[in-house]
């Protein structure tokens, strides 16, 4: 495999491995609370007329 094509897929970003580090990332990604979601829905409706 050539490095060039792989660069297009993973870029310059360090690959995060292991349970602790990846779990922290997933916790951050799943951190939207019900209060945040309500705020986001209100924002989407007000600024883009979108509902979800």
């Amino acid at each position: 495999m050539q490095d060039g094509p792989a660069q297009l897929i993973i870029g310059d970003y360090p690959q995060v491995t292991g349970a602790e580090a990846t779990s922290r990332i997933m916790e951050g990604a799943l951190s939207l609370t019900p209060e945040h979601l309500e705020w986001l829905k209100a924002w989407a409706a007000e600024t883009h007329g979108a509902t979800f």
Binding site: G11, Y13, P14, Q15, T22, S23, M26
Partner: peptide, 14 residues
């Protein structure tokens, strides 16, 4: 529920 899955590799992308 992705919170119950076990992550082992994350590839960030800006």
């Amino acid at each position: 529920d992705l919170g119950e899955f076990i992550p082992f590799l994350s590839s960030p992308g800006g």
